Simulated assay, not measured.
Amino acid sequence: MSTPKTWFVTGASQGLGLTLVKRLLREGHRVAATSRSQETLAQAVGTTSAAFLPLQVDLGDDGSVQAAIAQTISTFGRLDVVVNNAGYGIGGSIEELSEAETRQVFDVNVFGTLNVCRQALPHLRQQGAGHIINISSIAALAGATGWAVYSATKAAVSAFTEGLAQDVASFGIKATVVEPGGFRTNFLTAESLTLPQQPIAAYADVRASHARYLALNGAQGGDPEKAAAAIIQLAAEANPPLHLLLGPDAYQRATQKLDVLRQNFEAWQPLTLSTSFEA
């Protein structure tokens, strides 16, 4: 078993977040977990103990996040690992999704994650240690038809985690972005996904892509228990990676993207280099 730590996990009432919280508690860690409903979270975890702090938090409200972090510190005395897991999927072409829908998914997936990082960092800096783990997606590195806005939110998380890791390294704080593929959670259910309310018939390829993904529900190749174990192992590493792919499909999509990028860069190298000032 890894050394017991104090964890702060967002989006913990279902999916990977719930699996992670349950495993952490079984392994003897202290866990502050957030959800939009404290009651739903407590029922889902099914464990009441001095090591478990369920919190009702609006991640889009910086004050709500600040209060949750403060309560975690007050209850457990410190904070070791922050896991920004909360988020949801949205599908559709850019043209089909309203401004309100687009802003909402950025508010949750990106700004909610930023709010947690902003409020946790003063505590981590003061103690000179800590690990921020942001859950992104393989879609951040290798997008797919019909998921442009979702991919954009996850690409933002991956990109700002890279900058964050450099900003906080001198304080003894580590940052990792986890980019999973498909895991057998409720992510691909119609209840969990936001899809266009008024789909445009011309986007046949987008509809076909959504149908393929929805058909995978319950048959995804990733095991959430193994993903949770991997995240716990990650937090125990002295030198964790900046990027961690989870799942064979994530590895395949990422390496294929690397090949495509390399070919693209090399093919257009003459035009790229032609833009420099002449000596």
Rank of each mutant, 00 (worst) to 15 (best):
G163Y: 06
D223T: 04
V178Q: 06
Y150N: 09
V149H: 05
S274E: 12
Q220V: 10
R207G: 05
T3I: 15
E27C: 05
R78K: 15
R118W: 00
A120V: 00
L16W: 05
A279D: 14
S170C: 11
S64L: 02
I231H: 03
A140I: 01
S37W: 12
I90Y: 00
L188G: 03
E266H: 14
P241F: 04
A100I: 14
R30M: 00
G130Q: 07
I200C: 03
A279E: 14
A228D: 10
K154M: 04
I173N: 03
A165P: 04
G146R: 13
S74P: 05
Q220I: 07
F8S: 06
E237N: 04
R78I: 00
Q263Y: 12
R207H: 14
S37F: 08
G77C: 09
S136A: 15
D58N: 15
L79S: 01
A227Y: 11
S35N: 01
A70R: 15
I94M: 11
G221T: 14
A44P: 04
H210D: 11
I135H: 09
D61F: 09
I90A: 09
Q71I: 02
T102C: 05
A169F: 10
L261G: 12
I90H: 01
A219L: 08
A152Q: 09
V168P: 04
T145I: 11
F265Q: 14
Q66I: 03
